[in-house]
Design a protein around this nucleic acid. Structure first.
Length: 450
RNA sequence: GGAGGAGUGGCCGAGUGGUUGAAGGCGGCGGUCUUGAAAACCGCUUCCCGGUUGCACCGGGACGGGGGUUCGAAUCCCUCCUCCUCCGCCA
């Protein structure tokens, strides 16, 4: 969410942003709401002042002459506007009482109307996405994203590489039919070395990030409330993409970004503690209601998957350096696993709602002969922090909003399938990447009859 | 799930209808004193919104959240949330 005053003073920039992101923004509606709200507040506060003043006089049992000259000059026009018959001078106790009754009702009405307008204004502001950073390419869609760098090379096969669901089934480590029986489509069931591989990947990622990259591990709740989702920007817009628990205020978390952003919601952090780096392994749940029919084969797109999330709270001036190092931290995992990948800078049209700048990491999938997203790393600047009330206080200065950054480090399920595809062998076995061998206790997954 | 109790400023803690943003204390900041420090003493110590070029000034709002009663609510009523204690249940 943007700062209201900043928004009002830079409407042209937001108009430009809307065009770059390819969305509609009804700025005329904003102008109307904003103008009306401020006019009402001004009037209301004048009457409120008069009400407090008169109330105070009455409490002291004043009767006739009790206003200072200047006070009276300010007070009388307000009283007259509320009560036509208000005496021009020397109001009696009865006149004051009548005025107070009228002004109380009048102010109550104003309060309601102002609250209504503020809710409408809030709803409006909640759907304004973040402003892209100046280094973000303006574009119309994924085709305008920019490849920043490519690491490694695709593995060579002397046989046609199979898609991961075939490799997994042949090796007896992935059982999609039974997952469907238990839960339905878009759920996975791992068996034996497959289950262990998923666990090994999560542990490997957490170990690297906590031991080598300075992140503190968090194990948060997997269920989150409406307030937390709203603070991140998942709600109100993306309710349909999540699982909601009937009769409660709880939702299955779509990403640990929700929990980690809300770690410090409505708190003021010590300036010296920044940047704060945390990471979390969680299950993630997405109903993907709008995506039916896409990527139905295999486990690329699931209702439930695991992810190790990286998250940073930083000072504004350091957030873009921290974004670069966040991306490197995520890349380390792919490099250690020996997986060919590329880094893509998303264009304005392809970025998420809260992001000011986003890099995607895309891993090579030999069966498809293309790159597939495995991580998304964003700097949200103060956008989420403002919405979530996360500040820091510089020494001797006013408190400011922190910048928040998040990225996958990495999506475990997609890493699983990338390993399986890239390390598959002609005999149906799967080589275990060097870095995972201590976790797997073997250098090769051998096919097993189920 | 059942029965009780509690939520006040960075922290502790007064305050049960009237200029109370809120006594007192602690902490923090500035000053006096001191060779320096401590102690002592003095002063300061929140955030949001509106009017404004303005962190100046004027005004409004905020005592867990929301609603109500009243001319007026930290104080009375309703409701929700959180925490604590006891009972039940449970990995």
């Amino acid at each position: 969410m943007h700062d209201l005053n900043f928004f009002r003073d830079h409407l042209d920039r937001f108009e430009q942003m809307a065009r770059a992101r390819g969305i509609a923004l009804d700025l005329e509606r904003f102008r109307t709401l904003d103008r009306e709200r401020r006019a009402l507040i001004t009037d209301y506060e004048k009457r409120r002042w008069a009400q407090r003043l008169a109330g105070g006089k009455l409490a002291r049992g004043a009767t006739v002459v009790m206003f200072g000259l200047e006070e009276w000059h300010r007070f009388y026009p307000i009283a007259k506007s509320v009560d036509e018959d208000f005496p021009e001078q020397g109001p009696s106790e009865a006149a004051l009482e009548r005025f107070l009754k009228k002004v109380a009702r009048c102010n109550k009405d104003s309060e309601h109307r102002i609250a209504e307008l503020e809710e409408q204004l809030r709803q409006f502001m909640l759907q304004v996405p973040n402003l892209p950073h100046e280094s973000v390419p303006v574009g119309k869609g994924p085709e305008d994203n920019r490849v920043v760098r490519v690491w490694g090379e695709p593995p060579r096969f002397d046989f046609p590489p199979r898609p991961h669901w075939e490799v997994g089934e042949r090796a007896g480590i992935l059982d999609l039919p039974r997952a469907a029986k238990i839960a339905g489509s878009r759920f996975a069931l791992y068996r034996g070395a497959g289950a262990r591989l998923e666990r090994a990947l999560a542990n490997f990622m957490l170990d690297v990030h906590t031991r080598e990259h300075g992140y503190t591990e968090i194990l948060p709740p997997f269920l989150v409330n409406t307030a937390s989702l709203t603070a991140v920007g998942q709600l109100p817009k993306f309710a349909a993409d999540m699982f909601h628990l009937e009769g409660t205020d709880l939702w299955l978390t779509p990403t640990a970004e929700v929990e980690l952003t809300n770690l410090y919601r409505d708190e003021t952090l010590d300036a010296d503690s920044l940047p704060i780096r945390v990471c979390a392994w969680t299950a993630c749940f997405r109903s993907e209601a709008g995506a039916a029919g896409r990527e139905t084969r295999g486990i690329t797109r699931q209702h439930q998957f695991q992810k190790v999330e990286l998250y940073k709270f930083t000072r504004p001036e350091q957030s873009y350096d921290e974004l670069e190092s966040l991306v490197r931290d995520a890349e380390t995992i792919l490099q250690r696993l020996g997986l060919h990948y590329r880094v893509v800078l998303l264009c304005t049209a392809d970025m998420g709602f809260a992001a000011a700048k986003t890099y995607d990491l895309e891993v090579w999938l030999p069966s498809a002969g293309e790159f597939k997203e495995i991580s998304s790393c964003s700097n949200c600047e103060a956008f989420q922090a403002r919405r979530a009330g996360i500040r820091f206080k510089p020494k001797g200065g006013k408190s400011e909003f922190v910048h928040t950054l998040n990225g996958s480090g990495l999506a475990v399920g997609r890493t699983w399938l990338a390993v399986v595809e890239n390390y598959q062998q002609a005999d149906g076995s799967i080589l275990v990447p060097e870095a995972l061998r201590p976790y797997m206790g073997t250098d090769r997954i051998l096919p097993e009859k189920v």
